[in-house]
Simulated assay, not measured.
Amino acid sequence: MGPGFRGRLAALAALASVTACAGSPDAEQARICRRALPTLVPSGARVTVLREAAGPQERSIRIDFSQEREGRSPLPRYAVCQFSGLNRTDLSGLTSDRGPVGGAALYLLKHYYLDTPDAAVAEPGAG
């Protein structure tokens, strides 16, 4: 094994570690996204986070969760939170398995709910 081979091997190992880290979501983005979940389910439904992962787009996170209502079977759901390039914690989009959250609803969610004590209490735990 020559020095060139070892250098390529080290570069490959570094690339693999960067790729592995890219799959784990940002903790603060995950918290913000979890706080939005109760707004996506009917009143009285319970949310259980099943999995958190990097989302399909750059600067996004996907959360798979279960919606549970008394007398009904748990319903598997998901949400994808998109964050702006200006600030890593600026929620710029929210889509669920039921479709995107519209502009006015997203604005109200961001400015009047996500940072409130009610949102902190309603936030489901990490999966």
Rank of each mutant, 00 (worst) to 15 (best):
L40N: 13
G2D: 01
D64W: 14
Y78A: 15
Q29E: 04
A120C: 06
G127T: 15
D97Y: 13
Q29F: 05
A45C: 07
E28K: 02
I61N: 08
E52Q: 15
L9K: 03
L94R: 04
S17W: 04
G7M: 00
L91H: 00
R77C: 02
L91I: 07
P38E: 07
L37P: 02
A27E: 10
G2M: 01
C33W: 02
P124T: 15
S84K: 00
P74W: 09
D26S: 12
Y112Q: 06
T95L: 05
A119E: 06
S66A: 15
P56G: 15
S92C: 05
A13R: 07
S43F: 07
R35Q: 04
Q67P: 01
G125C: 12
L40Y: 11
A104F: 06
G127E: 10
Q67K: 12
V18G: 05
Y107G: 09
D115P: 01
T116M: 01
A79Q: 14
C21D: 10
D26L: 04
L109N: 06
R31T: 05
T95D: 15
S17G: 04
A104S: 06
S66T: 08
F65K: 12
V101H: 12
S96N: 13
E68W: 06
Y113Q: 03
D90R: 12
A126D: 14
R35T: 04
A54C: 06
P74L: 09
Y112A: 04
R98H: 13
E123C: 15
G44S: 05
A104N: 03
T48F: 07
R6Y: 00
L108Q: 10
L75A: 15
C81K: 08
P100E: 14
G2L: 01
S17Q: 09
G85N: 06
D115T: 13
D64I: 07
I63H: 08
P76T: 04
D26F: 09
S73C: 12
T19H: 03
R88C: 10
A14D: 05
D97M: 03
P117D: 08
P117M: 10
I63W: 08
L109C: 07
D97A: 01
L114T: 09
Q57M: 08
L9I: 00
Q82E: 11
L94E: 12
D118A: 00
G85L: 09
E68P: 02
Y107H: 13
L50M: 15
Y113H: 10
R35M: 09
R31F: 02
A45M: 04
P117F: 14
L109H: 05
L12W: 08
A120Y: 11
P100L: 12
G103C: 00
R6G: 00
L106N: 11
C81E: 05
G99E: 14
G93F: 02
V18I: 08
G85K: 09
G102M: 11
K110F: 01
E68D: 10
N87D: 10
G125N: 14
R59C: 02
L40R: 13
L50Q: 15
A20W: 06
L86W: 09
E52T: 15
R35W: 02
R72I: 01
S84Y: 02
E58F: 04
G23N: 05
Y112G: 08
P25Y: 04
A27H: 11
M1K: 01
D115F: 09
A119T: 15
S17L: 06
S96E: 11
